[in-house]
Amino acid sequence: MAEQQFEDMEAFLRVAKYTLVKFTDMHVEMKEEAMDICITAVEKYPNDAEKCTQMIKDQMDKKFGAPWHVVVGKGFSYEITYEVRNLLYIYVGGRTAVLLWKM
């Protein structure tokens, strides 16, 4: 099958509006909830990663207990150690990546 092609970035972003789970090992309910939080935060602060991460972290801490860490960005590298079943790595809206883990 031929690969889908886009003329420009806008066309791609129009299609890629949804959230893509790149990797997670969370339980289903936890994942759903964490994804909700992440998506809300990213959509609320599309241009302020700091506030966005603060919001995600606060909510996750409140809901699932303390130390959560969040990285939100358009390009980064990472090497992290996390408690198993507490990692979520998603792409939101085609250009933002959210990496959320607990340790």
């Binding site: 990797f23 960005g73 358009k74 390009g75 980064f76 590298s77 990472y78 090497e79 992290i80 150690t81 996390y82 408690e83 198993v84 990692l87 792409y91 085609g94 250009r95 990546a97 990496l99 340790m103």
Partner: peptide, 15 residues
Amino acid sequence: PPTATVSGACTQWEI
């Protein structure tokens, strides 16, 4: 609690 380590990189073109 058991832990694990992952590493990787994220770029626009990867997304």
